[in-house]
Design a binder for these strands. Structure first.
Lengths: 132, 132
DNA sequence: CTCATTGCAAACGATTTGCATTCGC
DNA sequence: GCGAATGCAAATCGTTTGCAATGAG
């Protein structure tokens, strides 16, 4: 499958990083991508992962997802508007569809609202069951 | 002024960090606190700042403020529940009172919601006027 | 063949930790 | 005086960079 999305020279490493993001439905941090990538190609370096991610963010193929207290995650940027649920126990980040909306009501007079980030925190289903 | 809020032994260093947060109305990052603190007490170590901040966060005196792409900031947590407006042009962070609420509706089945963070992004009044 | 990309290791900035010293209680 | 807190340096963590080797076009 020819890939018109990747810029620069087409290498197996960049394709692998893109495939990993495509086939995973939750946001991933660099180390997760690195661990997944090494299952396919054990000699890949983590710097290559960071460089691929940086390029894909520049090209707007990926978008950073900032979770309070965690390192940056990334996800494919072609998805619909959505938010995140961060599990404080297992650190996984889940996508939650929908949006409470009405952000304009919070915006101060004269400010120009462009976007918003919302992160829910708690315990995911697995961790909620395991605890207590 | 006696300070009932600080836990553990009362030291000049912890008092200084608390005073700095009290007398500054915008969120501060550790290095800003360190720089301000050294003006008063040049031999203070940055580890002391981090330890003081960590303790105050544990004691709920401070609360971390996470801004996408920036290192963590902290602010006094005695204020009401609120959110932030991050100006993409001047990088200032503003407090916005109020909350859209209804986060429970977004939470997936079986997940246990504990808290949420919301950051609005756009242009503040000054920068909105200056641009376009 | 040429030059972008890679792998690896060293460098980096932010934060944490180990440890001997200091100082509140 | 005892033990918590400090200052300093070394360690750690996530990320970036320098550089020689590799490989895409």
């Amino acid at each position: 499958m020819k890939n018109t999305a990747l810029t620069g020279r087409h290498t197996a490493q960049k394709q692998l990083v893109l495939d990993i993001f495509r086939s995973t439905k939750r946001p991933l941090m660099a180390r997760e991508v690195y661990n997944l990538a090494r299952q396919e190609r054990s000699r890949i370096g983590i710097a290559t992962i960071y460089r691929a991610i940086r390029r894909m963010v520049n090209d707007k193929l990926l978008r950073p997802v900032t979770i309070p207290g965690e390192t940056v995650y990334y996800e494919m940027s072609d998805a619909d508007h959505h938010h995140y649920f961060h599990c404080c126990a297992c650190q996984k980040v889940y996508v939650v569809p929908g949006c409470p909306g009405s952000m304009q009501a919070l915006t101060p007079q004269g400010f120009k609202l462009e976007r918003h980030d919302l992160v829910l925190h708690g315990r995911c289903e697995n961790c909620a069951r395991r605890a207590s």
